[in-house]
Design a protein around this nucleic acid. Structure first.
Length: 450
DNA sequence: TCTGGGGTCCTAGGACCC
DNA sequence: TCTGGGGTCCTAGGACCC
């Protein structure tokens, strides 16, 4: 903790706040994160094309610049990209979340050490916002470079850094850094009106953080808004009407340089917890679906207990295989149902029972199913569960048992201890044919050094 | 039979994010 | 043959209350 403060101070980067301009935000984003994780243990893949596949080896969720250059589409289905992948001999991996989670933690920890825990908001597995107020009057370009270099040195992961007066603008800066890695050295700072205006002119409207496909299309067709800069010419009223109400107003403010998204507290409590999976192959047997749902429920319950919550609502959904064949991918209809529990609980067995009953309700004999999922909501703090008169003290022991099971599972990083309803055969489980070893979280899969 | 205005809570669904 | 999984926030509209 002390160490790096010294490093940053040595370079004169940390300056007392509030001597000049307003606050600044940074977004630090790992480059092709999952691919970078794979490369870390296979240095011969440096500068070679790499892709990582989603669960079930369904589609491409991470690709390196080299793979992109060969025309591999982000989020495209694997089977469509396969000819390209084979032609150019692109290294391909099934996703290995144990590995990515571990490396993500190292990157975030580095950032926390660098600029202080309270100034880091982990936004996703490979991104974090930083509050740079304390560095505002120093050379931000230098600060950005230092952050990038330190993360790479300590973790081996390359990141891009975007710095600007608001979160939305920092995302714009980050995009520009990624688009031109060599010229920018992966760091872009937007700290003057002129730089911001230029950056916004260079940013297509659809690339703005918060403008998705629907809005991008609408803005282009109806309002001739083609770039982020065009959008800044609109009024708040206009944004409210055309860009999703208050959300659009906030977005517009941020584009104009006025912060409207604050830093979020670390460790936000989730309001909903879901575990859902596609099946490895379609399932027609109700017992298999129950088994899957029971497994998902215990996974979800673990997540629930990890944040010390209890659930009052449990919903289950299944997705039947589509009846018609079309060339375009469409989501099939989702069939779902839920129950409200009499008392909030985080006990796996108390959640599995209603979950399995819901499957009985949803299942139709003769249909093939390709996906199922469990959603826990109506979450309340576990410590202050509002009991009712008919619930006795037995609950406490149950919670103790649960936390023991969680610890065992966490230590093994697998479902060593399971409930009987989760079954043992698992015909429905995912395909993961190309997964790399879990180098950093399993002893027996650790990298050997010769 | 007639019938206002304002509030809350809940749910379904849509949009977005990585 | 084969297209992921896990979240967030907001809005509209209905039920209900006084």
């Amino acid at each position: 903790m002390m160490e790096i403060e010294c490093i940053l101070n040595k370079h004169g980067l940390k300056v007392p706040p509030s001597a000049g301009r307003g606050g600044m935000y940074a977004i630090v984003d790992c480059n092709s994160f999952y691919c970078s994780c794979e490369r870390l243990f296979m240095p011969h893949l440096d500068n070679k094309p790499v892709v990582v596949l989603s669960n079930n080896d369904g589609c491409i969720i991470s690709r390196t610049d080299e793979a992109k250059a060969f025309g591999v589409e982000m989020a495209g289905p694997y089977f469509l990209a396969k000819p390209l992948i084979e032609k150019y001999n692109i290294a391909t991996f099934s996703s290995n979340y144990n590995l990515y989670g571990d490396l993500s933690w190292r990157v975030m920890e580095t950032l926390r050490i660098l600029i202080g825990k309270e100034n880091v908001e982990v936004y996703s597995v490979d991104e974090a916002f930083l509050n740079l107020d304390e560095f505002c009057n120093s050379n931000l370009q230098e600060t950005g470079l230092r952050i990038r270099e330190t993360v790479e040195e300590w973790t081996g992961i390359k990141v891009s850094v975007g710095v600007a007066p608001t979160k939305v603008l920092s995302k714009v800066a980050n995009h520009l850094a990624k688009k031109n890695k060599i010229a920018t050295q992966c760091v872009v700072v937007l700290d003057t009106k002129e730089k911001i205006a230029k950056a916004l002119q260079d940013t297509p409207i659809g690339e703005v953080w918060g403008v998705g496909r629907q809005y991008a299309q609408k803005l282009i067709e109806l309002n001739a808004v083609f770039t982020a800069f065009d959008l800044t010419k609109k009024t708040a009223e206009w944004a409210h009407k055309n860009l999703g109400g208050v959300v659009g107003v906030r977005l517009l403010k941020e584009l104009k340089g006025e912060p409207a998204n604050e830093m979020k507290q670390e460790l936000t409590i989730k309001k909903m917890i879901a575990t859902t999976r596609m099946f490895g192959s379609p399932v027609k047997n109700i017992d298999d679906i129950k088994e899957a749902v029971a497994t998902y429920t215990s996974k979800a319950a673990e997540k629930l207990r990890r944040q010390h919550s209890a659930a009052t609502i449990i919903s289950v959904f299944v997705v039947p295989r589509e009846q018609t064949h079309t060339t375009h991918f469409r989501h099939g209809p989702t069939i779902s149902s839920y129950v409200t529990l009499p008392v909030a609980t985080s006990a796996t067995n108390e959640l599995i029972k209603p979950a399995v009953q819901l499957v009985d309700k949803l299942f139709e004999k003769g249909r093939l199913y390709k996906k199922a999922g469990v959603l826990l909501s109506g979450l309340v703090p576990d410590t202050t569960i509002q009991g009712n008169l008919f619930v006795t003290e037995a609950t406490n022991n149950k919670r103790l048992l649960m936390s023991m099971i969680d610890n065992v599972n966490f230590a093994m990083r697998n479902d060593v201890v399971k409930f009987a309803a989760s079954g043992t055969t698992r015909d429905w489980k995912m395909r993961q044919e190309l997964r790399s070893p879990r180098y950093t979280s399993r002893w027996n899969e650790m990298k050997e050094v010769h």
